[in-house]
Amino acid sequence: MIFSVSARKIRNSIRKAIGAKKINILIQFMIESIVLSGFGGLIGVGLGLGISWAVGHYTSMNVATSWNMVIISFLFSLFIGVVFGMMPANKAARMRPIYALHNE
């Protein structure tokens, strides 16, 4: 997310210069962060379920899936995305347009 903010510095500055509010830019980056961490969580849950199925199918071990843990791990992924997406999003929303354009 830090790279995403720095890569779109000029675009965000132009949006702020023509009237976008801080909340608009903050929401944009938070939605992106939630979507990315959600897809990452889904991929992680899918890999975990697939590997546990393969271990249970191809070995003599009994494997049980705790759906509570699956939901908790997915929600934790979303939580991490929100927490670590908020810092760069807040940085992008607070940036003054003149400084961002001047530094480029």
Results as ranks from 00 to 15, higher is better:
Ile2Gly: 11
Ile2Trp: 13
Ile2Thr: 13
Phe3Gly: 10
Ser6Asn: 12
Ser6Leu: 14
Arg8Gln: 12
Arg8Pro: 06
Lys9Leu: 13
Ile10Pro: 06
Ile10Val: 13
Ile10Lys: 14
Arg11Leu: 14
Arg11Asp: 15
Asn12Ala: 09
Ser13Gln: 03
Ile14His: 03
Ile14Asp: 05
Arg15Phe: 06
Arg15His: 09
Arg15Lys: 11
Ala17Phe: 05
Ile18Glu: 11
Ala20Thr: 01
Ala20Trp: 00
Lys21Leu: 09
Lys21Pro: 04
Lys22Pro: 04
Lys22Gln: 10
Lys22Tyr: 12
Lys22Ala: 10
Ile23Thr: 10
Asn24Arg: 02
Asn24Gly: 02
Asn24Lys: 06
Ile25Asp: 07
Ile25Gly: 08
Leu26Ser: 02
Leu26Lys: 01
Leu26Asp: 02
Leu26His: 01
Ile27Ser: 11
Gln28Asn: 07
Gln28Tyr: 04
Met30Lys: 03
Met30His: 00
Ile31His: 04
Ile31Ser: 06
Ile31Asn: 05
Glu32Tyr: 05
Ser33Trp: 00
Ser33Pro: 01
Ser33Asp: 04
Ser33Leu: 02
Ser33Glu: 07
Ile34Thr: 04
Val35Asn: 05
Ser37Leu: 01
Ser37Lys: 01
Ser37Trp: 01
Ser37Glu: 02
Gly38Trp: 03
Gly38Cys: 03
Gly38Glu: 02
Gly40Thr: 05
Gly40Pro: 01
Gly40Ser: 08
Gly40His: 03
Gly40Arg: 03
Gly40Trp: 00
Gly40Cys: 03
Gly41Tyr: 10
Ile43Gly: 01
Ile43Lys: 02
Gly44Pro: 04
Gly44Thr: 06
Gly44Asp: 01
Gly46Arg: 08
Gly46Glu: 04
Leu47Phe: 14
Leu47Ile: 15
Leu47Thr: 12
Leu47Ser: 10
Gly48Phe: 06
Leu49Lys: 06
Gly50His: 03
Ser52Ala: 13
Trp53Ile: 08
Ala54Gly: 12
His57Tyr: 14
His57Ile: 03
Thr59Lys: 05
Thr59Cys: 09
Thr59Asp: 05
Met61Ala: 15
Val63Met: 10
Val63Lys: 06
Val63Trp: 06
Ala64His: 15
Ala64Phe: 15
Thr65Leu: 15
Ser66Phe: 15
Ser66Cys: 12
Trp67Lys: 02
Trp67Tyr: 15
Met69Glu: 15
Met69Val: 14
Met69Gly: 15
Met69Asp: 15
Val70Ile: 15
Val70Glu: 12
Val70Cys: 14
Val70Pro: 14
Ile72Gly: 12
Ser73Ile: 08
Ser73Val: 06
Phe74Leu: 15
Phe74Cys: 15
Leu75Gly: 13
Phe76Ile: 10
Phe76Ala: 10
Ser77Trp: 08
Ser77Tyr: 07
Ser77Asp: 11
Ser77Lys: 04
Leu78Asp: 11
Leu78Ile: 15
Leu78Trp: 10
Val83Phe: 13
Phe84Tyr: 09
Phe84Pro: 07
Phe84Glu: 08
Gly85Leu: 00
Met86Asp: 00
Met87Ile: 14
Met87Trp: 11
Pro88Leu: 07
Asn90Cys: 03
Lys91Leu: 03
Lys91Gln: 08
Ala92Asp: 10
Ala92Pro: 10
Ala92Ile: 12
Ala93Lys: 02
Ala93Trp: 09
Ala93Met: 11
Arg94Pro: 00
Arg94Trp: 00
Met95Asp: 07
Arg96Tyr: 05
Pro97Val: 01
Tyr99Pro: 00
Ala100Glu: 07
Leu101Ile: 09
His102Met: 10
His102Gln: 09
His102Asp: 08
Asn103Phe: 05
